[in-house]
Each structure stands twice: as C-alpha cells, then as structure tokens.
Simulated assay, not measured.
Amino acid sequence: MLYSIRMRAAEGGPHEQGGHHISGAERLVTKEELEQISSELVHRALTHSKGCADFIRITIDAIPDEAIHRIPCLTIADEQTDGHIGEVPTTNHEATTPPLPLSSHQQAEALLTTHTAITPVAFRRAVSQLVSLPESMRGAMLVDMRTGQRLDPWGQRGVRVSRMSFADETAAITALNAAGYSGVHLEEALVLASKVLSAPGVVGELCISDDPDYTTGYVSYGSTYHRLHHMKPVGSPLGGRLFFVDATADIAAIKNYLETTVTLVNPPTFSLQGENHETL
C-alpha cells in the first residue's frame, strides 16, 4: 500500500482566506518513507524563494493498490531559443515568420500550433490571459484549443493536478541524471505533464514556473515534453499553466481525473544521453 502525501503552504493565512501561495508539493510513498518526506516538504515550505510560509498543511491518505493508475513518462526535448523572453502577439496582429532561433514564447507557439489542433489565436489569447493576472493561479486554466476562451469556472483556483508520483523515484532520478538532467523542478514537472496529457480531451500544455529563481518553462503535447528557457524575467514570481482542450470534452471529467485519480508515472527512458543541461 502507498500513501499520498500533499503539502500546501502560504503566507498570511490559508489560501482560502486570501493567503499568498508559497509552495505546494506531493508524493506517493511507502509507509516507511512518510516521516522523512513529511520533514522534507515542511523544510521546503519554510525555505522557499517566494518567502517563509506561516501556514502549512500536510495531508496524508492511504491508497489501495487497485486505485492506482499507471502511465508512461513523456520524452524530454530541449529547445534552443535566442535567449530573449518573447512578447505575446495580440490576437489581431498577423505575425510573420521570424528568423531562427526563436524567442521562448514564439517557440512555444510554433511547437503547439504546428503539432496539434491548437490555433495561433487560441495560443496568444490564452497566454495573454495568463501573463495579465495580478498574481499566479494556484492551479491551471482550461482553455479552448481553437479560440483560447477559458472553459473552467474555478477562478484563481483553477484545476489542480494532484495525487501523482514516479512509480520508482530512484530509477527515474538515475535515468534523468544519466541523460544530463537533474533538479526537483524538472522531476516534478515531468510527472505532472505526463499526467496532464493522459487526461481525456487535453491536447497540449504550456507552463511558466511561479518560482522567482526558475525561468525555464515547457510545452507538452503528444508524447513529448519540450523544455523552453527564458520564459520570464529572473525574479518574477508570476507564472501558471494552460491546459488546451477540445471544447467538446467533459470539463468536469477532466478536473476529476487530474485532481483525484492516483497516478504513477513510469521512469523516463532515453535513446541518447545528453550533457550540460540546466540543473535547477
């Protein structure tokens, strides 16, 4: 039997009472690991770059084996950009094809609109909504892949992906390190992105980290997770996630799957080993 352990931390009181989000993390662990992981998550909440939490909630639930859903891990690709943060074009501006290498936001748009049914209008409208928020959402927006219109009614909370972990964290970290990747940001994002794309109706994701010290984001679609550098200025606490979905999809079913289905992600595999990757 495994246990789901989840941590949420805020400054100024609980999130529901207007507290400023500091950190959130979770794991699926064995009984023997609970004490150590609990301590690590509390330490993370107290030493985060966004501030020192004065509200920390740890939730632990036992998970029966038959409730666990297993999925493959996305393949990692690193995209080269020109090192500049791309401005999001307005929806009434017809963009021309820029010379390579692209800026981060241009590369994100090119990847998602070339390889999926997500339209340029939808991408630009959705990203404009995200970067215009006064503060980061606690979850993700569900947006129409053709229009960019937000489809979920859950405001600043959005959809929160939960109850997930690598099936074998040691094996996953070993595989990532052997390929030249390391760092908790990548490990957690890869698990989350893999679960998101396994949800029925989700065709792609864009993520900009809300960690002030971490500027690498990603887009994912199909079976691939594309890392994109310089997605925001260093020091910015703003970020968030966009889940692009088919408007005919069952929004409530997507939310239920992402928030409640206990999911184990198989360790990643690599055909070629890389080197000198970002280690944040």
Rank of each mutant, 00 (worst) to 15 (best):
S4A: 15
R6S: 12
H15T: 07
Q17G: 14
G19C: 05
G19N: 04
H21L: 11
I22V: 15
I22D: 02
G24R: 01
V29L: 05
E35H: 15
I37M: 13
L41P: 00
T47N: 10
H48I: 11
K50V: 10
C52A: 11
F55T: 12
I56Y: 03
D61P: 01
D65Q: 08
E66C: 12
A67K: 07
L74I: 01
L74R: 02
I76A: 04
Q80R: 07
D82Q: 07
H84M: 13
I85S: 06
N92C: 10
H93S: 14
T96E: 14
P98I: 03
P99V: 11
L102E: 08
S104Q: 04
A108L: 05
E109I: 05
T116A: 00
A117Q: 14
A117W: 09
I118P: 03
T119Q: 04
V121F: 09
R125L: 12
S128H: 11
Q129T: 09
Q129D: 11
P134L: 03
M137L: 04
R138Y: 13
A140L: 06
V143G: 03
R150I: 09
L151R: 08
P153G: 14
G155E: 05
S162Q: 10
S162I: 01
A172G: 07
A178R: 02
A179C: 04
G180D: 01
V184A: 10
H185Y: 10
L192Q: 10
S194F: 02
V196E: 10
A199P: 05
P200M: 11
C207T: 12
D210T: 07
D211C: 13
P212E: 03
T216K: 05
R227H: 06
L228W: 01
H229P: 08
K232P: 05
P233I: 15
A247H: 08
A252G: 13
E259C: 14
T261H: 09
V262L: 08
T263F: 00
V265R: 00
F270V: 01
